[in-house]
């Protein structure tokens, strides 16, 4: 993020009028293209108007396009959006391809002012399992215990001590020995 971003207002991506939940509405309502009929800086825009403009209008009947020839001026595109915003862009020395691409960009914009996104998504329902409270995931047992209580005085996850491990090993050994003894007794009985 560069220093420039500090001056740009920040916000979350929002769609006007819940666009897309019902049906998708193109947010661009009209474009004004100002260009010069003779100067070189308008060459690309003029080519666009001659060759591609009709296709553009046929594909996007929801956008009204106005052409304003202005002598000896840089070509300029002013796009107006459904939320009332105007976006001004200079097309100086743009080629025909550039013009096509930028117009497509302007067409697919939502129309909100340029902002720095704090996050790339936004939701009105941040949690479906409910907001955390001090009682979330608490055992109901706590309600009827009187404190101080020996059980709750201990740490929740105590690692096994060496003594405890030894004791368990000893018990396991004893169990094994007793089983072996039993087996031996049985075999003796069968032999007899």
């Amino acid at each position: 993020m560069s220093n420039k971003c500090l001056l740009i207002p920040s916000g979350f991506p929002r769609l006007p009028l819940k666009n897309g939940i019902g049906r998708v509405v193109c947010q661009l309502k009209r474009i004004t293209i100002k260009f010069c009929k003779s100067s070189g800086s308008s060459q690309g825009v003029r080519n666009f108007i001659e060759l591609d403009l009709l296709d553009f209008t046929n594909n996007n009947p929801e956008v009204v396009i106005y052409l304003k020839p202005r002598r000896h001026h840089s070509p300029v595109v002013i796009s107006e959006y459904l939320n009332g915003e105007r976006h001004y862009m200079n097309f100086h020395n743009f080629t025909r391809d550039n013009t096509n691409k930028w117009l497509n960009f302007l067409r697919t914009r939502v129309g909100i002012k340029t902002i720095r996104f704090r996050k790339l998504q936004h939701t009105e329902l941040p949690s479906i399992q409910g907001v955390w409270s001090p009682f979330t995931n608490k055992s109901p047992e706590l309600n009827i215990t009187s404190f101080p209580n020996e059980k709750f005085l201990q740490p929740k996850h105590l690692p096994e001590s060496a003594t405890e491990r030894l004791r368990k090993m000893f018990e396991r050994q004893k169990l094994k020995e007793s089983e072996e003894m039993k087996m031996n007794n049985k075999s003796i009985e069968v032999q007899q």
């Binding site: 509405v25 193109c26 309502k29 009209r30 004004t32 009204v64 106005y66 304003k68």
Partner: peptide, 18 residues
């Protein structure tokens, strides 16, 4: 404004809503 065509605006209004 100079660039204003009510007929065209009405046409694209309907198209916009489909």
């Amino acid at each position: 404004y100079l660039e204003w065509n009510y007929e065209a605006e009405l046409y694209s209004f309907g198209k916009r809503l489909g």
